[in-house]
C-alpha cells in the first residue's frame, strides 16, 4: 500500500513548523516518527497534501529535569523514554507504558508527541501520562499554551491541539516511585490494548473504554472514602462507553476494566 502524493516540507525550527502549518492550512500534517501517521497514509485513511517534517528540530528532543517536573521533548522516542534513568527515577509509570507500545522497531521510531497527538484512547502513553498528571505544551502562532491532560483529550482522534499548533513538550510532575501501576490487557503479546488502566497516586485512568482516556471517578471516590479495592474496582465501568470490535465486546471490556483496576490498585499498593 502506497501513500497518496504529498509534498515533504522539512523544517528546522518550531517557528518554521508553525508557519508552515499556518501557510498550508488543513492540507498539512506534522510528521515526527510517522508511526501513527504513515500507516494511515498507506491505507489512504489520511491524505495530507503537505507533511511538515519536524524530526530535525533539535529543540524537541531529550528529557530534562526542571524543578519539580520532567520536561520531555515531543520527538523523544518510546525507546528513549523506556531506557531513560530520569524517567525511571521520576516517572516510572511512563517508562513502563512506553515499554508496552508496539514492538521494538516501532519504539525505536515512534515518538511520545506523535503518539499523544494522535489522540487514540488506547494509546499506552496517553493513558499513563493522564495518570501522571502530565500537561502538554502547544506552541502556536500566538506562543505557548500549557494544556492539562484533562483538557487535552477531546474526542475520537481529537485533541486540544489546533491545526497550527506544534506539540513541543510534555511536562510530567515528579511522581513517587511507589504507588503506581500500569495494566494492559491484550489478546496477543504485542497488540493494541483491549483495556488499559493507569493508577498513579490517587488517579485511576482507563484506556480504550471510550473515545478518550477516561478518569474512573467513581473508583477514585470509593478509594478516597475508604472502600476496599474490590468494591472500588466494581465501579470501574461507570460512565464509560467502550466499543465492541474484533478483539472484545463492550461487555467484556467493562468486565476487564474492573479486573484491571483491581490488579492495578493491588500492584500499586504492593509498591508502596
Amino acid at each position: 500500500m502506497i501513500p497518496a502524493l504529498f509534498t515533504h516540507v522539512p523544517v528546522t525550527t518550531i517557528k518554521e513548523a508553525s508557519d508552515a502549518l499556518n501557510h498550508y492550512g488543513d492540507d498539512a500534517k506534522l510528521l515526527a516518527g510517522g508511526h501513527s501517521l504513515i500507516p494511515l497514509m498507506k491505507l489512504r485513511l489520511a491524505t495530507p497534501g503537505y507533511l511538515i517534517d519536524i524530526a530535525r528540530i533539535n529543540d524537541l528532543r531529550g528529557i530534562r529535569e526542571d524543578k519539580d517536573k520532567l520536561v520531555v521533548g515531543a520527538l523523544t522516542t518510546h525507546e528513549q523514554i523506556e531506557n531513560s534513568p530520569l524517567i525511571r527515577k521520576y516517572a516510572p509509570i511512563i517508562g513502563a507504558a512506553a515499554k508496552l507500545v508496539g514492538d521494538p522497531q516501532v519504539r525505536n521510531r515512534g515518538t511520545i508527541g506523535g503518539s499523544v497527538a494522535h489522540g487514540d484512547a488506547a494509546s499506552d502513553l496517553s493513558v499513563a501520562l493522564f495518570g501522571a498528571n502530565a500537561s502538554f505544551v502547544a506552541t502556536g502562532p500566538n506562543g505557548k499554551r500549557v494544556i492539562s491532560a484533562v483538557d487535552f483529550f477531546l474526542g475520537f482522534w481529537t485533541t486540544a491541539l489546533n491545526q497550527d499548533d506544534v506539540l513541543t513538550e510534555i511536562h510530567i510532575p515528579y511522581a513517587p516511585s511507589t504507588n503506581w501501576s500500569y495494566q494492559k490487557f491484550t489478546i496477543r503479546s504485542q497488540d493494541w490494548a483491549v483495556v488499559s488502566v493507569a493508577v498513579s497516586g490517587s488517579n485511576i485512568i482507563l484506556g480504550a473504554m471510550g473515545e478518550i482516556p477516561l478518569r474512573a471517578e467513581k473508583c477514585e471516590q470509593a478509594i478516597a472514602s475508604g472502600a476496599d479495592f474490590e468494591q472500588a474496582a466494581s465501579f470501574a465501568d461507570e460512565g464509560t462507553s467502550p466499543s465492541s470490535d474484533i478483539r472484545a465486546s463492550a461487555d467484556y471490556r467493562r468486565h476487564l476494566a474492573k479486573v484491571l483496576v483491581f490488579d492495578a490498585l493491588t500492584e500499586a499498593k504492593k509498591r508502596s
Binding site: 515533504h8 510528521l31 508511526h35 504513515i38 507533511l51 517534517d53 514492538d103 522497531q105 525505536n108 521510531r109
Partner: peptide, 21 residues
C-alpha cells in the same frame, strides 16, 4: 517485520519510514 533494517544501528520497519525522512 519482514522489512526490518537497521537505521543508524537501530531496528526499524522500513515500510513505515519515508526515504526523505
Amino acid at each position: 517485520g519482514a522489512c526490518t533494517v537497521l537505521l543508524n544501528g537501530s531496528a526499524v520497519k522500513s515500510c513505515t519510514v519515508l526515504a526523505v525522512q
